[in-house]
Design a protein around this nucleic acid. Structure first.
Length: 604
RNA sequence: GGGGCUGUAGCUCAGCUGGAUAGAGCGACGGUUUCCUAAACCGUAGGUCGUGGGUUCGAGUCCCGCCAGCCCCGCCA
């Protein structure tokens, strides 16, 4: 209903200016535009929309708010265009104006949507003044480390990042999904040194060690690095060799990366997530230039032998400005340097960069300080073009049901593949007991497919349905629960619709004959029509949980409709109309789930 | 010591630029099945929005202090 609310807003602005011509001048002086403050009604009994503007204008106009509302309404009642969209506006409470959309307008919207593949969600270019540009939006997410397995710490970034990417893509943006994997740094020196001793063949040919062994070697090497000075020296030398392009070291590094990459890919396939790999090492050739340019722009300071930039407005322990080290005293670069090089590359015009207009980092909230620091440096160095955006999209920790960081019983970090396996196993057990209760017989292919879909959907949905910023309490029991704001509940609503459609025979909906009489129908219609606003809002706020809440609402309203009104057994003129609502509900839910990265089912 | 995030019903959480009597779900209690998948639906109970001030017509929302929890803070990422 974006179009409709836009039109109404225009009418309201006109009414406001006609009733109180002086506010145009006041608006110019104060700099605040005339805003009727049109928002959705806070309660159904207030209608569809409410206008709050009269209250805030009371002070500037020095008139009681109800009087202001009265004058606005007087103007509106003379506007035939407005009255064709809205029933007579009503003043309520201290000066709210309640609006109810004309039912035939709602029906018309439904009719449009039934014909529209995008379900009324505008492309970016249609609703913004500026044309869509080919300039991509970069979303940096997932980002596991080579030689480590993906664990629960990567879960939220991967799922949330993917959903944000899907939403922006659907809105018509060109999106570059970057996997900034940890494929460089001192850990490779340690690992190669360790492997040279224990499994030298692993450095020469592929598939000699599996990822699990690699992780074990990594742990061992880390331990030795911290304890054994000789080992430390050897590791450092190995890093230097690698950095200098030594072919043997390079080959070993490539093998390690390849081994890990295969493992990551398995997870991404299970989760149906597409990413372009561009690890930290990609930016190696640009690191030196970062230092040089920071130096020439006068930001660089040498302190204790390390090259660093002192931050503005961010203080360290002793109240002194906090430094960010971009080149260590031994000449090595660190992650801040890589991140700065990445920012530059991403904003630079092709062919020397991506030419991005917006860069989004989906990482845990713990890195907020780091990004604040790096962004500040990039801004001060003028590496972010005017009009371009760079933002950190933080999320909270994944906690166990005890409220502490999620760990296995033995205290290890939880591997992502184990977590997904367990979700599927539990979903399968639930399904089997359900089948038994209902005396249903289904083949193993069906059971596998349904359990896998539900298990993965449950994990994704549970994560996405939570406000990103707060910590998230992980619970298989809750996410797989058959009731509540969960993936199975939403999937079930769709299955019900699919069931109707299967048994509905040939659905022949004459769009010209849509007519609705029952409150359950109108509730569903009103809910379905909110889709476009919700998606545009999620695009702006980057909060997928808002989309989840919406889909849950749609499912609930649909389930009431389904429960309380006959559909296939209704008289034919109602049957077709109700089937139309079923179809649109199904399309809405499928689209929404798709934007969350969750596939849907016909039967379950 | 400095900084960030969080604090809303027994539990898990929503709450969009400040707006009408603070909302869901779970759990609890009670009800609904000759009918399209009851994995559903209907109803009841449950809150000094951490706390103390301030801003104003109006604060869960904005500002300041305090308390609690989690996270980050120079050569790891």
């Amino acid at each position: 209903m974006l179009n409709l609310t836009q039109t109404l807003k225009k009418h309201l602005e006109d009414a406001l200016e006609q009733a109180f011509p002086e506010i145009v001048a006041i608006a110019k002086v104060t700099g605040f535009p005339v805003d009727p403050q049109l928002v959705s009604a806070s309660k159904p009994e207030f209608g569809d929309l409410q206008v709050n503007g009269a209250l805030s204008l009371a002070k500037t106009l020095k008139k009681p708010p109800r009087l202001i509302a009265c004058e606005i309404v007087k103007q509106l009642k003379q506007n035939q265009d407005f009255l064709s969209l809205c029933k007579s506006p009503e003043i309520a409470g201290p000066g709210f104006i309640n609006l109810t959309i004309q039912p035939q307008c709602l029906v018309e919207e439904i009719r449009q949507r039934l014909k529209d593949e995008r379900l009324g969600v505008p492309l970016f270019k249609n609703c913004a003044k500026n044309q869509p540009s080919a300039e991509p939006i970069i979303i940096d997410f997932s980002s596991p480390n080579i030689a480590k397995e993906m664990h629960v710490g990567h879960l939220r970034s991967t799922i949330i990042g993917d959903s944000i990417a899907r939403i922006l893509e659907f809105r018509g943006h060109s999106v570059l999904r970057l996997n900034h994997i940890g494929d460089w740094g001192t850990q490779f020196g340690m690992l190669i040194t360790q492997l040279k001793e224990e499994a030298p063949q692993a450095l020469k040919q592929a598939n000699v060690v599996n990822i699990g062994d690699l992780v074990t070697f990594y742990r061992k090497s880390k331990k030795r690095f911290d304890e054994d000075e000789e080992f430390q020296m050897a590791s450092r030398q190995e890093v230097v060799k690698l950095q200098n392009g030594d072919p043997i070291a390079k080959q070993a590094w490539e093998l390690l990366c390849e081994q890990s990459r295969k493992e990551f890919q398995k997870i991404y396939e299970r989760l149906d997530i597409k990413l372009t790999e561009r690890g930290e090492s990609f930016y190696n050739p640009y690191l030196e230039k970062v230092i040089v340019d920071l130096d020439s722009s006068g930001l660089l300071v040498v302190d204790d032998g390390a090259k660093c930039i002192f931050l503005e407005d961010i203080k360290g322990k002793n109240g002194q400005p906090l430094p960010v080290i971009v080149q260590k005293s031994d000449g090595g670069f660190n992650y801040a340097t890589t991140d700065l090089a990445a920012i530059r590359y991403r904003f630079n015009k092709p062919p020397n960069g991506d030419g991005a207009c917006r860069v989004i980092y989906v990482t845990d909230a713990g890195q907020a300080n780091h990004f604040a620091a790096v962004f500040q440096i990039a801004k001060r160095a003028n590496w972010i073009p005017t009009g371009a955006q760079i933002e950190h999209v933080p999320f909270g920790l994944v906690q166990g049901e005890d409220g502490k960081k999620l760990k296995t019983r033995s205290g290890e970090t939880v591997r992502l593949r184990d977590l997904l396996d367990e979700a599927v196993i539990k979903a399968k057990a639930n399904l089997r007991s359900r089948l038994q209760e209902e005396n249903r017989k289904e083949d193993e292919v069906f059971i596998d497919h349904v359990a896998t879909t539900i298990g993965i959907a449950a994990v994704k949905y549970a994560d996405l349905s939570q406000n990103r910023v707060s910590n998230y309490q992980f619970s298989f029991e809750k996410m797989l629960a058959l009731q509540g704001n969960t993936a199975p509940y939403l999937l079930y609503a769709l299955v019900r619709i699919a069931g109707i459609i299967r048994k509905g025979g040939d659905i022949n909906i004459e769009l010209n004959e849509l007519q609705f009489t029952e409150s359950q129908e109108w509730n569903l219609i009103r809910e379905l029509l909110k889709l476009d606003e919700v998606i545009v809002e999620v695009e702006e706020e980057l909060l997928p949980n808002r989309l989840c809440s919406y889909l849950f609402e749609v499912s609930q309203v649909f389930n009431r409709f389904y429960e309380q009104l006959p559909i296939l057994k209704a008289e034919s003129q109602y049957k077709n109309c109700r089937l139309a609502l079923c179809l649109l509900t199904a399309e809405t839910l499928k689209l929404g789930m798709n934007l969350l990265g969750i596939p849907t089912l016909e039967r379950m």
